[in-house]
């Protein structure tokens, strides 16, 4: 049997590399009984349609950016709350609190999570060095979701909506002058062509997730199911390691190309964490029950 697997990112993104290894592992472990054909860079379905395509069994398996579902339930978006879980240890803790809750939510949609891998922590890209939160005031700050818009407002920056492909042009024309993203995205889009400073504020570690359609999974012979689950567990471990290595490697690439890689001042960090705390308070008042449960479990650990 051959499974088509749509993934949103290009072939050189470490998530895609990891998924191709996962596919190879499955094929090897099942001696070809299950082959997974990976369709990268959104070539099969646009990113926004992948989850629903798996749900309605157009494809059995797919990958997407987990917090795009935060409008459906706050539990999906916990990993994109600034400064809630800002290191790999915290992110791992958060994932173990989040996983059982979203597994239940996904089950309602006939979906089963296989594995989830974080992007390196999000840092700050600016032209000038940012020493305190006050330095952010007045900057045109790229915001692509509600949380970032709120974040920009609290930092007294001006939120600007720019779609990802427009980023280089937006920087070079002055439409935006600050953004938060991972070192991976920064290095891959050659951020040094338009900004000169990366401040490693490590704000949050958003995750990609691979889900499978439960009914199509259940139809597999038991030994194949076991092989898929085993390969998925390995892919999760490997993916987290790749993410750690990626964070350092991509920061090095940016440094080599002349960007200043700055460790944030204590003053900046305490200011940013205050903003994060304010946002968490807001979040708690509006989050779903499932979202609250993830947070409670995370804080209890």
């Amino acid at each position: 049997e051959t499974w088509n697997m749509p993934v949103p990112y290009g072939d050189t993104t470490f998530h895609t590399v990891n998924i191709r290894e996962f596919a190879a592992d499955v094929a090897e472990a099942t001696e070809g009984a299950l082959e997974i054909e990976v369709h990268s860079a959104g070539s099969l379905f646009p990113h926004g349609e992948i989850k629903n395509a798996v749900r309605s069994r157009q494809v059995p398996i797919g990958e997407f950016f987990l917090s795009t579902l935060s409008n459906e339930d706050a539990a999906f978006g916990v990993d994109s709350q600034p400064f809630l879980a800002a290191s790999y240890e915290e992110a791992e803790k958060l994932w173990s609190a989040q996983k059982p809750v979203i597994t239940e939510l996904f089950a309602e949609q006939d979906l089963m999570p296989l594995f989830s891998v974080p992007w390196p922590a999000q840092g700050l890209y600016t032209e000038e060095e940012v020493l305190t939160v006050d330095d952010l005031a007045g900057l045109r700050f790229r915001a692509y979701n509600a949380a970032l818009e709120k974040f920009a407002q609290l930092a007294k920056a001006a939120p600007v909506q720019v779609e990802a492909p427009d980023i280089p042009q937006a920087f070079s024309t002055g439409q935006v002058d600050a953004m938060m993203t991972s070192p991976s995205t920064g290095a891959n889009s050659k951020a040094w062509d338009f900004v000169s400073t990366y401040t490693a504020v490590d704000a949050w570690l958003p995750k990609n997730i691979v889900v499978v359609n439960k009914r199509m999974f259940d139809r597999l012979p038991e030994d194949v199911q076991a092989a898929v689950l085993e390969a998925a567990a390995e892919a999760e471990t490997r993916g987290w390691e790749m993410s750690v290595a990626e964070a350092d490697a991509k920061k090095a690439v940016m440094a080599e190309n002349g960007m200043a890689i700055v460790t944030p001042s204590d003053e900046l960090m305490s200011g940013l964490k205050d903003i994060g705390a304010t946002m968490m308070e807001d979040w708690k008042t509006s989050a779903s029950e499932a979202g609250q449960k993830v947070l409670a479990d995370y804080e209890a650990e």
Partner: peptide, 14 residues
Amino acid sequence: ESWDYGDMSSGIVA
């Protein structure tokens, strides 16, 4: 199906 599952857009306004 979108109605059944309550699918939402992913932007600032849901």
